[in-house]
Amino acid sequence: MDRSKKLSGRVAIITGAAQGIGASYASALADEGAAIVLADILDAEPLAQEIRQRGGKAMALKVDVTSASSVKSMVANSVEEFGSVDILINNAALFGNVQPKPFLQITSEEWDRMMSVNVRGAFECVKAVAPQMKKQKYGKIVNIASGTVFKGIPLMLHYVSSKGAIVAMTRCLARELGDDGVRVNTLAPGLVMSESVLDNPAWRGAVVQNNVNSRAIKRDATPEDMCGTMVYLCSSESDFVTGQVLVVDGGSVTH
């Protein structure tokens, strides 16, 4: 165990970790010494192999965050493989492939799907991991929201509403789990140029430039820009921080 690393000896589950920002979180936590569980409905084994080749510990699991049985198995497999679960990053969500549209054009089915993945998915994962963290009397849960919650942007009502729910969920969970040594916080990124966003024609040109112009630091955000804050929220450096929202968007939101 390398005690010079901030997460040495910790075990972290990252949902939606096969690509994009989730993959960056996983790599950053692995570099700080955590054993990584890559949970995704997509194949995360290539990233797991890459982390192991760098000398880290990692396993990939196929997980559907909307399935209670799937996330329960995820936690059981993590404990069996690595002995504990110390960190949960609720990163799995619908966003990159979503097409912005007026709320009058959002179907009931689209709304329900967004809430199922983005809100109930996070709920199912916390519910599955909480007994283990309570037993250990220690845990770090980082929920992922969005700077859009504090802006009220148009054309993404279902998405922004789902991320507002995540902020509220974080505050409630922090109260319920504080006496068990479990800290629950929210990281709220701005528009990050991840793989799925770059592949979506809706997130190009003036839409992106206007977002950049709203920032104090006027440049595109990369997945790596999120990682320092994520490591902080997962490490002992934030042991007296819970129920908080940390916006990482170059100063577009000053919350």
Rank of each mutant, 00 (worst) to 15 (best):
A168G: 15
K135P: 01
N97H: 12
K163N: 02
V197T: 02
A48N: 06
G33I: 06
D112Y: 01
G178C: 12
D112C: 01
E224G: 13
L233P: 06
V119E: 01
M230K: 07
L155R: 06
A92K: 04
A12M: 13
M156I: 12
I144H: 02
A58V: 05
D220Y: 03
V79G: 03
V85D: 04
V167F: 03
V71T: 12
R215A: 15
E237W: 11
V149R: 01
V142H: 01
L173M: 14
K135S: 14
S24C: 12
A68V: 13
V65K: 00
L29N: 06
L246G: 03
C234F: 08
K57M: 14
A39M: 06
Y159Q: 05
A68S: 11
I141C: 04
S162C: 07
W111V: 00
V208L: 12
A48Y: 01
I141R: 02
R219S: 11
F82D: 02
I14K: 07
G152V: 10
K101R: 13
A39S: 11
G250D: 04
D64I: 04
R113E: 02
I36A: 03
V160C: 07
S84L: 07
G152C: 08
V119Q: 01
V167N: 02
S214F: 04
Q53T: 12
F82V: 09
N210W: 10
V71R: 01
C172L: 14
L246W: 13
A44N: 06
D239T: 14
C234P: 06
P131V: 09
V231C: 10
R204W: 05
H255R: 09
D180M: 04
V63G: 00
E176C: 08
L198G: 09
S73E: 13
V253A: 05
Q99E: 15
G139N: 03
W111C: 00
T186F: 00
K218W: 11
G205P: 10
N200G: 08
Q105F: 05
E32L: 08
A93L: 08
V98M: 12
S194F: 01
S116E: 11
G33T: 09
G16R: 08
T66G: 01
M1T: 15
P102V: 05
V11T: 15
V207F: 14
S235P: 12
F82Y: 15
E110G: 02
I141E: 01
T170I: 05
L191C: 02
Q105L: 12
G147C: 07
I21N: 06
A216E: 13
S162V: 03
N200E: 11
L61I: 07
V207D: 10
F82P: 01
S4D: 15
V248N: 08
G243P: 07
V207R: 15
M193W: 03
G250R: 03
L246C: 11
T107G: 00
M226Q: 15
I153G: 03
A122T: 11
I166M: 00
P201Y: 11
N210L: 13
K57E: 14
